[in-house]
Amino acid sequence: MNGDTILVEPGIYRESVVIDKDVCLVGCGGPTAVTIESIDLPCLSLQAHDVRIEGITVRNSLAVQPSQYGAVDVSCGQVELVDCDLSSISYACLAVSGPEAAAHVRNCRIHDCDGYGVLVSTVGSCRLEQCTIQRNGLAEAAAFQNSDLSLQDCTLCEGKGYGVLIQDCSQGRLLRCDIHANAQAGVAVFQESIADVSDCKLHHGWGSGLTFYQQARGLVQDCEVYANLSSAVEIKHHSSPIIRSCKIYKGKWSGILVSDVSQGIIEDCEIFDNVMAGIEVMWESNPIIRRCSIHHHAYPGIAVFQGGRGIIADCDLRQNAPGALSVEAGSQVYQERTLSTVDPPSS
């Protein structure tokens, strides 16, 4: 009945459970004591207005080609998942899909899926707090098709794909997350999507720390982006985010790359000790760079080439080995009140 609390005794339940009433399902003995396992369907299909799942392990094991559903599948209603363990070799551990589908996930472990750890699609919404999402194949967490994804105090790591993927005009919000050791970008914002990333650490990834691509926008502030194998921040293909008050350092390529007719604002950042230039601007891009300290690079603090442009104001470009600023013929920048150890180059 609606409003009931159902206590589940310890054990392994090999079945697919459909919940279409407003109930609370609570595992006795904690998430390691109660397991719901399914082979060819979602373990939990949640279709009620108000459902709470607490203290349960959900495990999906498929012997055939997986269909596009999650081990926990939310197609409508408000769902709360607390203290659960989700794993799957299907399409996703948690799938939230549809304009009437919303999930609030707290203190859960979501891991070891061939596809997505969390997938929000088709105008769905999902908020995750204090979760560990790891070792998933395509992305630890993703939002597609005008969906909304929020992560707070989460760890997303060790994936074979992206840490967080926001695309198809979706929105993402990340606060105090630790995103590391993923094979692709820690946070990727694609296709007119918007992301607000605050007070996060993005590090030791095999790709970039953050990528904005194809008219993507957003605000990145008070973050540390370091020790990634590609450029720490990539702004590409007509994108225009704001990068504010961030520390960007010890990357294996440039600190920030702005390319492909992109813009954006980079302000109040400290960018240092990256292998290439602190900031690279190319291919008709035109960012505003102001009040930044860019130092200790083996290449110029800022390198502008292949038709790049930009405004540089109130920056400290001292202590870069080959000089403060390099502007290739055919490129152009406007400088004001910039500190450097050499005279500014002519464009």
Rank of each mutant, 00 (worst) to 15 (best):
N2Y: 08
G11C: 03
V17C: 07
I19C: 12
G30E: 00
G30K: 05
V34C: 09
T35M: 13
S38N: 14
I39T: 15
S45M: 11
Q47V: 08
H49N: 15
G55E: 08
I56W: 01
T57P: 08
N60W: 12
G70H: 02
V72W: 05
V72F: 04
V72G: 05
D73L: 07
V74G: 03
G77I: 00
E80K: 01
D83E: 07
S88R: 04
I89P: 09
S90P: 09
Y91H: 12
A92Y: 04
C93A: 14
L94R: 04
P99K: 15
P99A: 15
E100M: 15
E100P: 01
A102Y: 03
A103K: 00
A103F: 00
N107L: 08
H111S: 08
Y116N: 05
L119D: 08
T122D: 15
C126T: 01
L128N: 01
E129T: 03
T132P: 07
L138M: 11
A139M: 11
A142C: 09
A142I: 03
A143V: 00
F144T: 07
N146W: 07
S147T: 01
D148I: 02
S150D: 08
Q152W: 05
C154M: 05
T155R: 12
C157N: 10
G159P: 13
G161T: 00
Y162H: 12
D168L: 02
Q171C: 06
G172I: 00
R176I: 00
I179C: 08
A181R: 15
A183I: 01
Q184R: 14
A185Q: 12
F190H: 06
E192T: 02
E192I: 03
D196A: 08
V197M: 08
D199E: 11
K201D: 15
H204K: 10
S208Q: 09
T211D: 07
F212L: 07
A216F: 01
R217S: 12
E224G: 13
V225F: 10
V225Y: 02
Y226A: 10
S231I: 00
S231A: 10
V233T: 04
E234G: 06
E234R: 14
K236D: 07
K236Q: 13
S239M: 05
I242S: 14
I242W: 11
C246G: 00
Y249F: 14
Y249R: 12
S254L: 06
I256C: 10
G264A: 08
I265C: 07
I265E: 14
C269P: 10
I271V: 11
F272Y: 13
F272D: 01
V275G: 07
G278M: 06
G278W: 00
E280Q: 14
E280M: 13
E280D: 11
V281D: 09
W283D: 15
R291T: 05
R291L: 14
C292P: 11
H296S: 13
G301D: 08
V304E: 06
F305R: 15
F305H: 15
Q306M: 13
G307V: 02
G308T: 06
G310K: 03
A313I: 01
C315H: 00
A321I: 09
G323N: 07
A324D: 12
S326Q: 12
A329N: 10
G330D: 06
S331M: 04
Q332P: 02
E336A: 07
R337L: 05
P344I: 00
P344S: 01
